[in-house]
Amino acid sequence: MSLIIGAFTMGLILSLLSLGMLISFRMIRFMDITVDGSITLGASLAAVLISAGWNPWVATLAAMGGGFLAGAVTGLLHARFKIPELLSGILVMTALYSVNLRVMGRSNIPLLDVPSVSAAMETFIAFMSGGAEKINTLGWMISSTDLATFLTTLFICILIGTLLFRFLLTHLGTALRAAGDNAQMVLAQGLNNKTMIIFSLALANGLVALSGALLAQYQGFADVQMGIGMMVWGLASIIIGEALVGKAGLGLAITGTILGTILFRLLIAIALRWGLNPNDLKLVTALFVFAALVAPSWIATLKKKISGGSRYAQN
């Protein structure tokens, strides 16, 4: 059972990454590769700061700020210096690799015996359950630590999801979405779409870094390699989310992204359980995203062929 709760927790944490990418990839339609670097940046900042004795919440917020800055740099490179968007992301991602090593001082920081953001929740659960190691939750016995982490992550996710939803409905949020939908229109309405891009990328990578910070605390370590392939995972999650609930409406898009990420993690957990070599995971994910990108047009052609064929048969 810990497998499932683990997958859920992991899914919730990574759904913050997916939400960030929802802003960059879907809202402003920016192929932002910074993600692979900024999730590691979030993790390493959080790990270093928590190890240094900072309050985990403050450390997590600081990590988020780091991601925010990284995103802003990508935005600046693209908007101010007219570097193509993919290249801007690659430049920042590559730079972040060194930054992350500098931040951590080495390639890996373990987080053992240090408090995490779920510390308060653990205390609370311990208080409620009288200090039991395992707690009966809906008939399953779950470790209190896992439950605390799960509940804390769930809380953060719901909070961020709601805030994001509210934000996108404000004047600024509306302008941000419009910038992605029709840049020409935004200019004509007196908005600086460059500023909008920089801000959006900052916001997106802030969320990605938050995800990284929580991930480090959940896994118990930060690793300079941990970001590799994260962008594709996030993309896969968004695609699954869209398949689950469709694209109509902001609320649905946000909920769908969170659900999609969780489902994706569950699928991975199951696949690993069935004996998928963890080393093949990224290949499988890439294949999945490829299929998801190609399938719609492929299915459409197929449908046309089938309906065309039947019409021919009637004649």
């Binding site: 934000f167 404000t170 004047h171 600024l172 509306t174 302008a175 979405r177 419009a178 939908d181 029709n182 229109m185 935004v186 309405q189 007196g190 908005l191």
Partner: peptide, 23 residues
């Protein structure tokens, strides 16, 4: 106009043309 956004949202953007856009 921004095709993915609603009529109301599009118009709201134009109602603030040249003004600051807050939260």
């Amino acid at each position: 106009t921004a095709p993915g956004m609603t009529i109301a949202e599009n118009i709201v953007i134009s109602m603030h043309r040249g003004k600051s856009r807050g939260l």
